[in-house]
Simulated assay, not measured.
Amino acid sequence: MGKQAKGVGKASLLALSVMSILAMDGYSAFAQDAPAKQVFGNIALPSAGPSASYGSYAKGCQSGAVALPTEGQGFQAMRLSRNRRWGQPQMIAFIERFAQDAQKIGWPGLLIGDISQPRGGPMLTGHASHQIGLDADIWWRPMPDRVMSADQRESTPFISMLDKSKFLTVDDRKWSPLNAKLVMLAASYPQVERIFVNPAIKQKLCQTWKGDRTYMGKIRPIYGHDEHFHVRLECPPGAPNCKPQAAVGAGDGCDKSLAWWFSKEPWAAPKKDPNAKPPKPPRPVMVSDLPRACAAIASAQSASAGATLIRNREASAMPAAQPEMDTNAPSVTPNALMPPADIPRPSSRPSLN
Rank of each mutant, 00 (worst) to 15 (best):
K6T: 13
K6E: 13
G7Y: 11
G7E: 13
V8G: 12
V8S: 04
G9V: 08
G9M: 13
K10Q: 13
K10C: 14
A11W: 08
A11L: 15
A11P: 00
A11C: 11
S12Y: 00
S12G: 11
L13N: 07
L14Y: 03
L14V: 10
L14Q: 07
L14A: 14
L16T: 07
S17I: 02
V18C: 09
V18G: 09
I21K: 07
I21F: 10
L22Q: 12
M24A: 15
M24I: 00
D25M: 06
D25R: 09
G26R: 08
G26W: 03
G26D: 09
A29Q: 11
A29F: 05
A29Y: 02
A29N: 11
F30T: 04
Q32C: 07
Q32W: 00
D33E: 10
P35Y: 03
A36H: 08
K37H: 09
Q38M: 14
V39S: 10
V39Y: 01
V39Q: 06
F40A: 01
F40I: 02
F40W: 01
G41C: 01
N42E: 08
N42R: 07
I43W: 00
A44H: 03
L45P: 03
L45Q: 05
L45R: 11
L45T: 00
P46V: 05
P46D: 02
S47K: 02
A48N: 14
A48K: 13
A48M: 08
